[in-house]
């Protein structure tokens, strides 16, 4: 039996019957028969904590795809998740909640400007690779990804949803980018009515277009529509808007950049885009 280390705040605690939706080397996504928590993931420690995931140490199990198949039945009883076909047992009852950010009350434009600079530099530096043209700004990175963005976010935020499903990967770049935008809008939702308005306009569109992307990406997008974001994304946005400490930004950036193949960088691009459009123009 394994003990789950952390649990997201949207994880089920009630018994459920479920099925494996998809499985990766270090992650298992599960659909449940609970209406309130229809989705739950088991993620390796190295993967970012999300509101709907339990993090576990899968070290001893090797590649999970060799062990678990999509469609395998899953049962949770008394906080213990069992995958009988894989003889996998995870006790979630001792898992700790990961810390969430506090609501942001004040915006300091000078501070945000500075932090934006740090993050943009971090993103550019990250994109240095052999034989690759130099990427100097978030804008260039967005162009490089081939995403379409409106000239003015406030006037046509719906445009962004054209990117849903666009790009490579399990969570297409366009979706990751959109997540970043939504994360910033959500963080200032209460104190900045314009952000709330833009968020709602995007949300309306996203809802209708969830079918255009992968199930997993759609899951994270729909969480975002309810203003739930993964731990690293939530905290990066929070720090960009509040912290004085450069190294805090650097650590938060590194955490995000290490997510997926390019997902982290794509989300950061969305965050930086939204900060420019919303808070710095």
């Amino acid at each position: 039996m394994m003990i789950a280390l952390t649990k997201g705040y949207l994880c089920p605690s009630q018994p459920f019957n479920g099925k494996v939706h998809s499985v990766f080397r270090r992650a298992i996504n599960i659909t449940t028969d609970l209406t309130s928590e229809p989705w739950v993931s088991l993620l390796g420690q190295a993967l970012p904590a999300t509101p709907t995931a339990f993090q576990c140490d899968f070290g001893a199990h090797g590649d999970l795809t060799a062990l678990v198949k999509a469609g395998d039945v899953v049962f949770m009883r008394g906080g213990v998740i069992r995958l009988p076909a894989a003889a996998l047992v995870v006790n979630t009852s001792a898992a700790k909640d990961w810390p969430q950010t506090e609501p942001i009350m004040l915006l300091n434009q000078a501070l945000i400007q500075r932090n934006f600079g740090l993050a943009e530099a971090g993103l550019s530096q990250h994109c240095v690779a052999p034989q690759q043209q130099r990427i100097r700004s978030a804008h260039e990175y967005i162009q490089h990804l081939g995403l379409t963005t409106p000239m003015c976010l406030a006037s046509a935020p719906e445009w962004l949803t054209n990117n849903i499903g666009y790009g490579k990967g399990l969570t297409p770049s366009g979706d990751d980018f959109l997540l970043g935008v939504l994360a910033v809008l959500s963080s200032v939702y209460e104190i900045y009515p314009k952000a709330a308005d833009i968020f709602q306009r995007i949300a309306l569109q996203v809802q209708q277009q969830l079918g255009k992307t992968t199930d997993i990406s759609a899951h994270y997008l729909s969480l975002a529509l309810s203003r739930h974001f993964s731990q690293p994304v939530q905290w990066l946005v929070y720090y960009l808007l509040t912290t004085q400490d450069e190294s805090t930004i650097a650590i938060a950036m590194a955490k995000n950049l290490s997510i997926g193949a390019s997902s982290g960088a794509d989300t950061i691009a969305g965050i930086l885009y939204c900060i420019t459009q919303l808070l710095l123009s």
Binding site: I3, G78, N91
Partner: peptide, 11 residues
């Protein structure tokens, strides 16, 4: 039986 603090301690 199945008490978080015990499961954790046993681990």
């Amino acid at each position: 039986l199945n008490q978080p603090e015990i499961e954790l301690a046993n681990q």
